[in-house]
Nucleic acid binder design. Sequence first.
RNA 1: CGGGCUGUGGCGCAGCUUGGUUAGCGCGCUUGACUGGGGGUCAAGAGGUCGGGAGUUCGAAUCUCCCCAGCCCGACCA
Length: 607
Amino acid sequence: MGCGGESWGRTPRASRGDSQLKTHHSGPTCSERSGPHRPLPWRAMRWSQAFIPTLRDDPANAEAASHRLLLRAGYVRQLSAGHYSMLPLGQRVRQKIDRIIREEIDGIGGQQFHLPAMHPAELWKRSGRWDVMGEEMFRLVDRRGSDNALGMTHEEVFAQLASEISSYKQLPQLWYQIQTKFRDEPRPKSGVLRVREFTMKDSYSLDLTWEGLDEQFDRHHAAYQRIFSRFGVDAVDVEASSGAMGGSDSVEFMVRSDAGEDWIVTCATCDYRANLERATSQVEGVDDPDAVPEAIRFATPEIRTIAALAEAFPEIAAPDRQIKTLVYMIDGSFTLVMMRGDHALQEQKLQDVTGGIDVRPAQADEIRERLGALPGSLGAVGVTEHPIIADRALKGRRALVTGANEDDWHLANVDVDRDIAVGRWADLREVVEGESCMVDGGLLDLWKGIEVGHIFKLGTKYSEAMAAIVQDENGESKPIIMGSYGIGLERSMAAVVEASHDDKGIVWPWEVTPYHVIITLLRQQDEAVVAAGDQLYEELIAAGYEALLDDRAERPGVKFADAELIGVPYRITIGPRGLESGVAEFTTRSTMETIEIPLDAVVDQLP
RNA sequence: CGGGCUGUGGCGCAGCUUGGUUAGCGCGCUUGACUGGGGGUCAAGAGGUCGGGAGUUCGAAUCUCCCCAGCCCGACCA
């Protein structure tokens, strides 16, 4: 066993309430080895020997607080767009995140694996995702001419391993790994928040029954709450879409931040919370006449928008009396999508209800070819040769206005049930801030969040594709039922910084900080200062703390600013002034409060 | 992929419009001195293929073309 990686495993005391004991390091420490380059214990570092390249100025091109601070405080460096190097401080934080995840996933019965990052195309072809993933998946050809992919996720590999399970007696299982994932993001941004290469903890539950899946899912849900709580962030669990590859009971864990890229809807007065891709709200109804005469055409020259039509014919064509007809190509199928005129389509909902993989708006020429008109004059009345999906807000509506599928003409007196062959009703509209909650009518709030975790029920898609079949107690063959659970490590690190910083720098929560305490020495030439610093440093390390000793020959201002920038929770300042009376200054980073305490009381003052 | 923009020493930038000795500035870095509780002062230094290539020209950081990289907005996005 070496001096590095394994000696750090002291459970920080603040975490789980059970460990108030001061863990003392026993046995010889690494620092007792002789030689000029003796390794230091993992939890000790002298700044003068460390690589912590802090920047005095804010880097250009760094907008998000986490991006700016992680760069400036010397945690990460960009190698290229979407690829970041973890510097020693960043790596320490990442290792702590890694460890917290392992403790909690192990705690619900997880077994850790380590799978290849590169996969043969064959594997992805079996699940059908070789074609589905498109350009988002990195692909490469080896010297034999074989296609390979860099893994975006590992359902296929785990499912293939699961095919070795043949009896229900071997279930349930919970398998996980912490691995590099590759996604060829079209637009990496915000530092480490959206990248092309990142570390993800992905776990997969294997069960015989759906009830078993539910239990493992719930256990993950609770474990995730513990994990994010230990990260020191408030991660809100929200109802979500499971995306292109299906699944159900999808829950995302979101950290509130303007740097986030997801919109979250929460109710002010109840527990309802959902990703905007999924959220619903109460829609105020519109009074319609009991019956309307036959639909009639009327001329609408040059009118192409809902607003223009409403302005030209205010008495019959208010936006909520219009049908907005959108046209999508859903896996190559030309589909009409109907919304109330004043409502917006939420595309992910369309994708979810249709199960479509390649969903895009149809182009003008495709539309004219099939409907005979251009967007602005489109409608579904009389259309029978194309599928029609309608938002439920249109159900039963009468006396509406819609395009006539002839440029410059619209139809009035449209009765949806009578005049339009709706093939499918669905909730397709995007919620707007300030609407009423479906559950209790409360006011809905809309905010931006960072997705740090995502759990959902996969079902049998991959087990069927990879022939992960077991026999149950009756000898019947059953595909293993899977769940999938992910956490982004670097993104979690960035989310912590987003949630915990001030104008001076980062403010690390206790469990993920790279060091627990920094000793700032003022006046290195003063032998008493150096001696007192060294002694305290040794004491802290012996007591199980991770300590950084700032022994650089820098001005006090530089050292203070750097300590605050890198965000270590506690700073002990030792200078000749206090030393005369045997005291040091004890500064709490989060509050920036400073107290004077005797040097020998420092260890007791720490959590 | 569409729109906007940027590449000049480790970081942040000026110079480019109007081509002309040796390419500047602040910070950082090295050495020394003075200093010493919130990014100090002075002195002496080191460090640059001006993103790359081709071209125009007597002469290109500067003008032209092509390429590359990066940033922002949008599209996209398990």
